[in-house]
Design a protein around this nucleic acid. Structure first.
Length: 259
DNA sequence: ATGACAATCAGAGATTGA
């Protein structure tokens, strides 16, 4: 089973890009971030026509996440638990009913800039809530994965120019420490389970010719529970998507599971 | 140190992103 994550940077802006990618990559499940659309305006027919069940958690202008699945989705929940006052649409969960049922958590973790300040406080608090949610899911022993735009550069090797990010919310020690705490619960980062070394990125800024200079960062991740990690066959970054017409600033990352 | 680029909403330019 192929599961992909993709920060699309606006579903309306990607109205030609997305079907082209889906028809080429053929994921069974696609976890989307930054749909920048309310649920009523999401072009669900475009995906339903391709055989996907569509579940969205949208918001006007900003944020918004979705799960598309060719397999049935059950028990869909929207929003990250732990803060009743959080208005931002950044989290969705659903169980994908394949050979092995897998709980898929789609997330768009807050950017957190500028630092210090309320936006960084929100990011760190959000990460604490995510850690709590992972702890709860681990007790169930049901296979699950958390994937999406983490807005965290885990290590220096995950940036072409790590020195440019030392004061940034994506790479500050507190951000990296929270990400490690998530891993240290017993989750496996799928890409690093398969590939070592520098030069692997999932985001290139639109500005200053970042793509042409390969000035990228790796911030889109798959974290797998132990039962889910046992099923991991492959994890790849579809870097070439960034060079096609009207790209998002992120590219898809996908895993193949024996499920 | 800043802005560069793109998207959104609105219908210009501010806001947000990373």
């Amino acid at each position: 089973m192929k599961i992909a994550t993709f920060n699309i940077n606006g579903v309306k802006a990607r109205i030609d890009t997305l079907p082209r990618w889906l028809d080429t990559a053929q994921p069974d499940v696609a976890v989307l971030q930054e749909i920048k659309s309310v649920d009523e305006n999401f072009p669900r027919e475009m995906f339903e026509d391709r055989g996907y069940q569509v579940e969205t958690h949208g918001q006007k202008s900003f944020n918004g996440v979705a799960i598309l699945s060719k397999l049935p989705l059950e028990d869909v929940t929207r929003g990250l638990p732990g803060d009743e006052n959080d208005e931002q649409a950044r989290y969705i969960e659903a169980t994908v009913m394949g050979e092995t049922a897998i709980r898929v958590c789609g997330l768009y973790l807050p950017n957190g800039n500028p630092t210090p300040g309320p936006k960084y406080d929100y990011k760190l608090a959000w990460m604490e809530r995510l850690i709590s949610r992972a702890q709860d899911l681990l007790t169930s022993e049901e296979p699950f994965l958390m994937t999406g735009d983490y807005n965290v550069i885990p290590q220096d090797e995950d940036a072409a120019r790590p020195e440019a990010w030392t004061q940034d919310a994506l790479a500050l020690p507190q951000s990296r420490a929270a990400f490690r705490r998530l891993l240290n619960l017993g989750l496996t980062e799928a890409f690093r389970a398969r590939t070592n070394g520098p030069g692997h990125y999932s985001f290139w800024d639109y500005q200053a010719g970042a793509w042409d200079r390969n000035d990228g960062i790796r911030i889109d991740h798959f974290l797998l529970s132990p039962q889910c990690a046992d099923l991991l066959l492959d994890c790849q970054i579809d870097q070439q998507e960034r060079g096609l017409t009207k790209p998002s600033d992120h590219v898809p990352v996908w895993i193949d599971l024996a499920a």
